[in-house]
């Protein structure tokens, strides 16, 4: 009898020991709303996570159809990662349809990637008179690589909340990702000289170029900021208010949008105003996300001679943009092309 009890006890003990070990080897199931979030989550989570992205990078991220297949993917998820700021209006519908309590708002499995980012274009008055305004500011935050580091931090902290055992690993991978972003943005030589944190602080305050100039380090600037030099100080017209973060980081301004108001296609009158503006100024490029109707943009281009640059805003939207780094590389190359040609020509 005693032997039987001991044997049962040992089996129970083994079972208790084996449960956590299984849990440790079990990968976290993560769903994301954008492919860039999938990229960054894979950078942070490594082989500890399997990530499924719900939208297609060719889609407008504002208007993804909340299909039952997306709900079913979200049903099995340990974490649901979204940009937030009312970018993905469809996300809550997917979560409600999933019936998954772990990813409801306020639960550890719901990760808002834009938390803590100082948003731009925060509206003073929130009214539909202004079109599809975002009450919490412009949500296209990931197009600034410095914000991508904040996104990665939120993801690392979020994964750490639901997988405490691997928290230090996520933090380690976060540091590596931040280092890679710094080197890609500022150039490895400058990062080595000054340090990524200080460069980031300077860039956020708009004092980076002045500082490195004063220090005689301008020649060491590399990476995306170097590649985007032709854009600095330029004016570029965009279709939608998609590019403010990208423009701020790479030094160009967006004096006017082709859309009359966010989400409102241009009237003939507004289109003519844009044509007049482009013709009078030195605008050489019209940028549009490639899921928008390009007819108005094309029309303005034919009247003014400006180049139309239709590009994806999510990774994987076209060949050669599979990772976040590829996407920013691609965007800088495409958007600065008209200015490089004119600078050399």
């Amino acid at each position: 009898m005693l032997v039987r009890f001991i044997a049962l006890g040992l089996i129970g003990l083994l079972a208790c020991v084996s449960v956590p070990s299984q849990a440790q080897t079990k990968k976290l199931k993560v769903v994301t709303t954008l492919a860039v979030l999938k990229n960054i989550t894979e950078e942070i989570g490594g082989d500890r996570v399997t990530v499924d992205n719900l939208s297609d990078p060719r889609q407008d991220p504002h208007y993804v159809q909340p299909r039952p297949t997306l709900m079913n993917k979200a049903r099995k998820a340990d974490a649901f990662i979204e940009i937030g700021l009312q970018l993905e209006l469809w996300a809550q519908k997917v979560i409600n349809g999933s019936g998954n309590p772990r990813i409801q708002l306020g639960q550890p499995g719901r990760i808002i990637a834009s938390d803590g980012i100082a948003t731009l274009e925060l509206p003073r008055v929130v009214s539909r008179e202004w079109g599809d305004v975002h009450p919490y500011g412009n949500p296209h935050v990931w197009l600034d690589p410095i914000n991508a580091k904040r996104v990665a931090t939120n993801i690392a902290r979020g994964l750490g909340r639901i997988d405490r055992a691997q928290r230090s690993e996520y933090e380690r991978r976060l540091s590596e990702f931040e280092q890679r972003i710094d080197e890609a943005l500022f150039g490895a030589e400058l990062v080595k000289e000054i340090g990524g944190s200080k460069l980031t602080r300077l860039a956020e305050r708009g004092r980076l170029l002045e500082y490195i100039d004063n220090q005689g380090l301008s020649g060491k600037l590399g990476g995306w900021l170097k590649k985007a030099e032709p854009l600095r100080g330029q004016q570029i017209v965009t279709y939608h208010k998609t590019w403010i973060y990208f423009a701020t980081r790479f030094g160009f301004s967006v004096p006017i949008e082709i859309e009359e108001k966010p989400g409102i296609p241009p009237s003939a009158k507004h289109r003519d105003q844009v044509i007049t503006f482009v013709a009078k100024s030195d605008v050489r490029a019209l940028i549009t996300a490639d899921y928008y109707d390009a007819s108005a943009t094309d029309f303005i281009a034919t009247k003014t001679g400006a180049a139309v640059i239709a590009v994806p805003i999510d990774s994987g939207g076209v060949a050669g943009t599979q990772s976040y780094f590829d996407l920013i590389d691609y965007l800088i190359a495409k958007i600065s092309a008209p200015y490089r040609v004119s600078a050399h020509g």
């Binding site: 409600n96 349809g97 999933s98 019936g99 309590p101 772990r102």
Partner: peptide
């Protein structure tokens, strides 16, 4: 009203709503 979490169990079997 819809229950999005069951008070007694953490996981909703088959995404029960």
């Amino acid at each position: 009203f819809t229950l999005k979490r069951l008070p007694v169990i953490d996981r909703a079997p088959l995404g029960l709503k």
